[in-house]
Design a protein around this nucleic acid. Structure first.
Lengths: 146, 146
DNA sequence: CAGTATTCGTTGCACTTGCAACGGTGTCAA
DNA sequence: TTGACACCGTTGCAAGTGCAACGAATACTG
């Protein structure tokens, strides 16, 4: 009896669905600020963390926003070159950097944050009644061993 | 009155949470077959679609599995070089290719599919009661305009 | 102390990625 | 038929990526 391989439906496969949803969401967000501000996703994450945690090291960002440290390093360099932040060496531990937004960087965030907030609001409205379950499902996927 | 910029919590931001969850999930899946079989995510998606849709073109795959056509083209070339599939020109329209699995490719899928199925089962168990809401939330994010 | 091990951020390297442009093929209307 | 146009898959190129290795700074250990 020839064994037909069990059919496999990619469109119902959770890792695939997640990847597509994440990509669409990130792309939709990036569209809202990439052209106008020239900020990539990695740079955006760095900016957010520097913006609300003050003087942070590359390592801090690496650990808290799920970015490779080399990616953080290069994103920070691009942001520094663009004048959005400065790198100082930490006086306590001179291996560490202390990244801080410049005034220009704060201006940038003042423009970006409302855009980001509006998008979050839009997404919440779209998800509506599924939002809570969706959020706790994401929590599981972000924290549990897979 | 100095205006403190509204705080922005990245860890509750949906695009960020989705990106992290998707990355972890894809990485967990890739761990299960990358080392042993040397298959990337793009190659995996191409394989799945060729495996269950028979003779397909690059464009078909591009449209159905959310991959850039250049990415599909290069993934298909790697798979061809590894002996997992062959490219023929479509007789009806010689602009199109018809990709088909070789016997070696079918053997590969016979090994990969159970791994993939087991992972899906594991994820469903993890998500458990949130699964239905999670799935319909993903559906919204995959289909609606963002 | 001295000497080793560890941590931090950067960088070299090979590889991947996205995008635009290309040659080859098919379509359609004049 | 021919010419303009559209579509398919590939590829060149610049930019981004992950990983390992590096120098500099610090921590640890005897």
């Amino acid at each position: 009896m020839p064994q037909t391989p069990e059919p496999f439906d990619l469109s119902s496969y959770i890792p695939y669905r997640l990847a597509v949803a994440a990509e669409r969401t990130s792309a939709a967000l990036a569209r809202r600020y990439r052209d106008e501000f020239g900020i990539s996703v990695a740079e955006w994450r760095v900016l957010v963390h520097v913006s609300d945690a003050g003087a942070v090291s590359i390592r801090d960002i690496h650990q808290r926003v799920h970015l490779e440290k080399s990616k953080v390093s290069r994103a920070a360099s691009r942001l520094e070159e663009a004048g959005y932040l400065i790198k100082e060496v930490n006086g306590q531990d001179r291996r560490l950097l202390a990244l801080r937004l410049t005034d220009k960087g704060q201006d940038l965030m003042a423009q970006l944050l409302p855009i980001a907030q509006a998008f979050q609001t839009q997404l919440k409205q779209l998800l509506d009644s599924q939002l809570d379950a969706f959020d706790s499902a994401l929590q599981v996927l972000m924290e549990d061993d897979l």
